[in-house]
Design a binder for these strands. Structure first.
Lengths: 138, 138
DNA sequence: TTCTTGACTTAGACATTATCCAATGTAGGA
DNA sequence: TCCTACATTGGATAATGTCTAAGTCAAGAA
């Protein structure tokens, strides 16, 4: 994660305690927190951090391509730090749990030119939906 | 669209003026309105219709599988009446325009069993993102 | 036709998520 | 160390969606 902080400093980021804490919270695989969860976890370490700062920092990290914004349920957006490895999401329709998955094939290649209607297509998101083992057995 | 109203009546739906108007607003191809847009258009014909009723009716239509809920931007959900033909979405990252598209291949088949982590996978959504011709030339 | 009843609708309060803004604080270069 | 542009704060505000209590009405029954 200090990698990330170094990269950010290289891009002219001013390194503040708040930004450091937000970046630390997002460290790890299979992390998909909402902005509010990030704020709560950040506040454990830095109690006076404000929600606005968390939103600002998340927005900047998204712009810089360091994290990905995921809205799987039409409720709060979630933030996925695993931005440097192409992957898709598998979401439990009941409890909202998200798993990163790696389908075979390239979905972008599945959209033929005549189905692009003149768009410059640059990205594709695939969201699989189902019931997770936990919820299925409950 | 009277097809739809007949189907709904067959399912025990009480047919009210409000529900009729909402169903009419959603008639057509490539329609992707937000709940608020549906409410505004419905209110053109039936000025006293309330937002709660629009939300209720949209929710029921989704449960019945007559329309699909799409959240492409983390803001308002949009409602797609084209529920009986499998299709995916192509979204302009700048202006938010949505087009229905039909990729080749079956994305569900691209998720191997060992990538399903015990989930019962029942659906997949694919969202292509890019810049539409309009925004590209602006 | 008229009656009855439970499903439907309404207005507005409330909840959740996100953004804006003016005042204040501070990281990092000079 | 000092400056200053950039960052942070908290509170107001916006956008979207949900809930509730009271009134209304569609459609079957008589």
């Amino acid at each position: 994660m200090s990698d990330l902080l170094e990269r950010l400093r290289g891009r002219g980021w001013r390194l503040t305690a708040q930004r450091r804490v937000v970046a630390e919270v997002l460290n790890g695989d299979h992390v998909h927190y909402t902005a509010d969860e990030v704020h709560a976890k950040a506040a454990d370490r830095l109690p006076e951090i404000s929600r606005a700062t968390v939103y600002n920092t998340l927005g900047e990290l998204v712009s810089l391509g360091e994290i990905i914004e995921v809205s799987t349920d039409g409720r709060a957006k979630r933030y996925d730090p695993n931005a440097h490895h192409a992957h898709q999401h598998l979401v439990c329709a009941r409890c909202g749990t998200i798993r990163d998955v790696h389908p075979s094939g390239d979905p972008l290649a599945d959209l033929p030119a005549e189905q692009r209607f003149g768009f410059e297509v640059s990205a594709v998101e695939v969201t699989y939906r189902g019931i997770c083992p936990n919820c299925a057995s409950a």
